[in-house]
Amino acid sequence: MEDFEPRIIVFACNWCSYAALDLAGTSRMKYPPNFLVIKVMCSGRIDPQFIFEAFRRGADGVLVAGCHPGDCHYIEGNYKALRRMTLLRKLLESFGIEKERFRLEWISASEAEKFVSIAHEMYREIKALGPLRIEEVSKIGEA
C-alpha cells in the first residue's frame, strides 16, 4: 500500500476556484501532484453523474470546488451545487464510498492557500484509505 498514489479529480468553477488553483501554481505553492483538474463554468454545472462517472473510471477521490455562498457569478449556481452534493453524499455513503473521498469546498479566487491545505489533507486521507476498487463489482462470479 506504501506505493499507492491516489488519483483525485477536482471539479473547479471557472470564476473562483480555478483562479485559486492557478494562483497556487503561479505563487509556486507546493501540493501533491495527484490532483487532476477539470474546469467547469460553475459548480452548479456539476451533475452528480459526473462524480459517479469519475469514481467508476478510477478516481480515488473527488473534490468539487466553487465560489463561496453569495459570490456565485451566476447568482445561485453554488447553492444548487450545495443541495446536490448534500444529497449525493448520502448516496455515496450507501454505495460504501468513505466520506473522505468526496468533498465540497468553497474556494475563492484569492484562497490558493486554502486549496493547498485541502489538497494535502485529502491526499493524506485518501492515501491512508487505499485505492477504491470498483471494477470488481461489475463482473459476475465475484463476491
Binding site: Q49, F52, E53, F95, G96, I97, L132, R133, I134, V137
Partner: peptide, 9 residues
C-alpha cells in the same frame, strides 16, 4: 455507474 455497494479491498 457504481452497480451497487462497493467492497473496499
Amino acid at each position: 455507474r457504481l452497480r451497487g455497494k462497493i467492497k473496499i479491498m
